[in-house]
Design a protein around this nucleic acid. Structure first.
Lengths: 206, 206
DNA sequence: AGAAAAATGTTAATTATTTCACAATGTTAA
DNA sequence: TTAACATTGTGAAATAATTAACATTTTTCT
């Protein structure tokens, strides 16, 4: 159970998202091939992932939706809950803040930061915006462990350094500029241009 | 040259992004280990990717930045250029539109769509917003081949179907709801919650 | 000139991920 | 009751991606 493949973790998160919708619709059982269909993958892969987390379905009935949701939660959610901040409350920052609000109990956005004094003090989806200058203090006070960076690319390296010094242990970088963090900090970077270029490449090759 | 690995395509896009910055700074040559450092990968991987596209560096001098940028462009950009639209001009749609404007010559966002009549007719970063009801017509008129969906999750399946019927051949789905498209359409899905959950999981396991 | 150093290019090995193939077994229908 | 069917669970095979190892070459230094 301890050494789950990277890809399995990603998929578990996605399975849960899909399962929550199924649960909301009143489904109590689901087959591996139904999950597979939703996620555009194979049923074998779903079964294998579920096998890896030690859950067992019912033959000919599939998996109990509620039980599977709970088990995935036990695996991928941390017990205590994690506090998250968003740095840069432009369009992307607001999109993310909006998107998360009230979605997960174990991951909470507890602060947003910006340099713009016009934004400081305002609330975004119920979350207060603080001055970037106070970031270190607030991160410590609120015990924030993960930061989502949505600032302009040119500011990313400097802000990344500030975040690391403030004690962040995980970072999600949505700026177009890769940043360097010490190896103790888990970093995930995503660039929309790369995704679009990938789509543009692969539409032409089939 | 034709069967480049998926991952290599992604990295080439990222190398180009980094190389463009280096070029802007006046660098003419770059070593594989310098690119590797920026992208948080190994120098071997960089050299292998570059080998796969058939480029050859200069021993002890590294790669010519300008030449490499151009070659990557020849590989991953389509010759004629591709028109792209953004569907849903909320925070995320605006972030993407902003982000792209004037960045690439071969990929252009030529239209944005929304249901909100208050947005229709307005311009977002120079791109006109059209009524969702006219989407099919505009996609054909403007020869749009790729769509970026940034609508609320519940609208995603219906809009995805409309896009497919309108003749889209590539789709980037940023909604939290997976959609189904025929196999001729290349689909890429990305969910920020999955990324954040992944970070949350891996910060706890090292 | 010769040796040492620092790069690239590439084959081979390794590791990670996915898929195949099929045994096991509960369910349905005749 | 029995046969046909549909589904899970999983070892083994196949495929994909990364890394190691090293030959080669240019540059620099003595």
């Amino acid at each position: 159970m301890k050494n789950l493949p990277h890809k399995t973790i990603e998929r578990l998160s996605q399975y849960r998202r899909a399962l929550l919708l199924c649960h909301a619709k009143g489904m109590t059982y689901i087959y591996s091939h139904e999950i597979a269909k939703i996620q555009h993958i194979t049923a074998v892969q779903v079964r294998r992932d579920i096998m890896l987390i030690g859950y067992t379905g019912t033959l000919r009935k599939g998996y109990n939706v509620k039980e599977l949701i709970d088990l995935i939660g036990q695996i991928i959610d941390s017990k205590e809950g994690i506090n998250v901040c968003v740095v840069g409350i432009g369009n992307l920052g607001r999109a993310i803040t909006n998107y998360f609000s009230g979605k997960r109990t174990k991951l909470s956005i507890v602060a947003v930061f910006d340099v713009d004094k016009g934004k400081v003090g305002k609330k975004y989806h119920g979350i207060e915006c603080f001055d970037l200058a106070d970031m270190t203090k607030i991160i410590k006070e609120k015990k924030i462990e993960i930061a989502i960076m949505t600032v302009p690319g040119e500011d990313a390296p400097m802000i990344s350094d500030m975040l690391v010094k403030a004690g962040i242990i995980g970072m999600l970088n949505y700026t177009p500029k890769p940043v360097n963090v010490p190896k103790e900090v888990y970093l995930e970077e995503y660039d929309m241009i790369t995704s679009l270029e990938k789509v543009a490449f692969f539409v032409k090759t089939h």
